[in-house]
Design a protein around this nucleic acid. Structure first.
Length: 319
DNA sequence: CGCCTTTGACCCGCGC
DNA sequence: GCGCGGGTCAAAGGCG
């Protein structure tokens, strides 16, 4: 742990007062831990997606702001029935050239914990391996037993990850895409299993994992991995069509969105910026700005926060 | 019949 | 080397 600078940034009426950065080094590797908090955001204005998008608090921003590679990054967020309470961004290790970061952002003046079960879980998960033995585009066909030896020289490339902590009764977030469950595993130290889903679209390698939080069973952790290379399916079995107006289900000219938050971005409040997307594969890398600037330019006192936040925070708005 | 879920087995990386 | 845990495969069965 070294750097402990607290910074702030403001954007679109929202303000993140603190960005706490810890840095640790382990045998040549450097881990970054960021915590971002906010205390002056107008709840009626700011939402998680607002933050991600309007404040450029998205993947690319983090990547740039924190010098992290998109691969193996994760973003945790919480969307509480439209009323956001917290979001948490977690950037993982592996392909980052040794960088590991975790960003916890708090909205609506609520608190969050950087050590929630979600974070821990993803942490352990990623810090270990991620051994997807398969090629990047085999769509699950190529194999299993037998083709593992092939990736000898090259290290398995990790897909970008994007995780949401969602308060929901149902495990599966309806995000407009079609998913096929291909596995389920018991989660250590949790009574709830983790389900593995794969996008059913051909040649789309996007996967997602869904698990219910052990400490807060009312929340579901959905982790997306990879990027959709196709538009939203027109034939939605589920209910995305019912949840969103047709216009919102229409993919952008570039075939986005790839993630639920992007879908949300297409809502009226978010449609701006949607035409200046970066090429596929770097969808995150486009907007950014004030965030990074403020991150690097502003210093504010340490408010000392977030450390003691508990997942139960999510529940505070429950009836 | 096509698509999906379930589920046990398997593979792999890591720590001990 | 072994065991553990995470991730994936694929057969079997269910459902519309």
């Amino acid at each position: 742990m070294s750097d402990h600078g607290l910074r702030d940034f403001y954007y679109h009426g929202g303000a993140f007062n603190n960005i706490d950065h810890d840095q640790q080094s382990y045998g040549g590797e450097t881990n970054h831990m960021y915590r971002v908090s906010s205390s002056s955001i107008d709840p009626s204005y700011m939402s998680f997606t607002d933050c991600l998008h309007s404040t450029s608090m998205d993947y690319g921003s983090l990547e740039k702001a924190f010098g992290l590679s998109p691969s193996s990054s994760e973003v945790f967020s919480s969307v509480e029935g439209g009323n956001r309470t917290m979001m948490k961004l977690h950037v993982g290790a592996d392909e980052l050239g040794g960088n590991t970061g975790e960003v916890t952002a708090t909205l609506n003046s609520s608190v969050s914990s950087s050590s929630s079960e979600a974070g821990c879980e993803e942490d352990s998960d990623k810090s270990k391996k991620d051994g997807q033995p398969k090629g990047p585009d085999d769509g699950g066909e190529s194999s299993k037993k037998g083709n593992k030896a092939k990736m000898k020289g090259e290290k398995k490339q990790r897909e970008p990850r994007f995780a949401f902590v969602t308060k929901s009764e149902v495990d599966q977030l309806e995000d407009g895409y079609r998913w096929r469950k291909y596995g389920q595993k018991a989660v250590k130290n949790s009574p709830y299993p983790r389900s593995y889903y794969r996008c059913t679209t051909q040649k789309c390698t996007v996967k997602k994992r869904v698990e219910r939080s052990f400490q807060d069973p009312s929340t579901v952790i959905t982790t997306y991995e990879g990027q959709h290379n196709h538009p939203l399916p027109t034939t939605l079995r589920g209910s995305a069509a019912g949840l969103f107006p047709p216009s919102m289900l229409t993919p952008s000219p570039l075939g986005r969105p790839s993630f639920p938050h992007e879908l949300l971005m297409q809502m009226p409040n978010y449609h701006h910026q949607m035409n200046s997307q970066a090429p596929a594969g770097s969808m995150f890398a486009e907007n950014f700005s004030p965030f990074q600037q403020y991150v690097h330019q502003h210093q504010v006192p340490d408010y000392g926060l977030l450390q003691d936040m508990v997942p139960s925070t999510f529940l505070k708005h429950e009836p």
